[in-house]
């Protein structure tokens, strides 16, 4: 009786673990893939990604309620200031359902880079965003160089190195 119960329990547990491994239906843009274009309302007029072709683009998907996103803002300001002359453009797409929330956030967190608003969440679906924030480094030909989920200071150094090598290796 006991062993039978334990077997049932064990089988159910294995099934549970297996289904975790298989439940991924992900399709995020991978390195070397071409990015889709988009046109979104921005802080200063429409933001069209293809208008920035020829620049190295750091594309960031963020929301006002996401803690690591808040932490990434000073760093994105720094990157934009440091590498603007060399051809880096930071584009941050806000995904708040209520753009008002994003405006409040921007009033407190200064952004020295391009900000666009996608309150319907169309672009993150196409880019396969898996967490908040998610960023893509896109080369001058519109190809994905890097995808990164989350934001931690430990990771930001690594991303900066990738920006530097992308700017130098053109």
């Amino acid at each position: 009786m006991k062993t039978q119960k334990m077997k049932k329990f064990g089988a159910a547990f294995i099934a549970l673990v297996l289904s975790f491994g298989l439940s991924s239906n992900a399709s995020a843009l991978d390195k070397g893939e071409k990015v889709p274009d988009f046109s979104l309302p921005g802080k200063q007029g429409a933001v069209k990604l293809s208008d920035k072709a020829g620049s190295l683009i750091y594309l960031d998907f963020w929301a006002s309620w996401c803690g690591p996103c808040r932490q990434s803002f000073p760093w994105m300001n720094e990157m934009q200031a440091k590498y603007k002359a060399k051809g880096l453009q930071v584009v941050a797409v806000n995904l708040d359902a209520r753009t008002d929330d994003a405006m409040k956030f921007l009033a407190q967190n200064h952004a020295d880079f391009t900000v666009a608003f996608d309150s319907k969440g169309q672009t993150p679906r196409v880019f396969g965003v898996k967490g908040m924030p998610t960023s893509f480094l896109i080369d001058r030909n519109g190809m994905v160089l890097m995808q990164h989920v989350g934001f931690k200071h430990a990771d930001s150094e690594d991303i900066e190195k990738q920006i530097q090598s992308a700017l130098e290796g053109k």
Binding site: A26, S27, A28, D30, K31, G67, P68, K130, G131, M132
Partner: peptide, 24 residues
Amino acid sequence: GALLASAAMLLPLANLVYADAAPE
């Protein structure tokens, strides 16, 4: 296919979502 292949498996260990990420 080629454009939108899953990159998830190749991702480095990173905090995917605020709620399960280590507190800041």
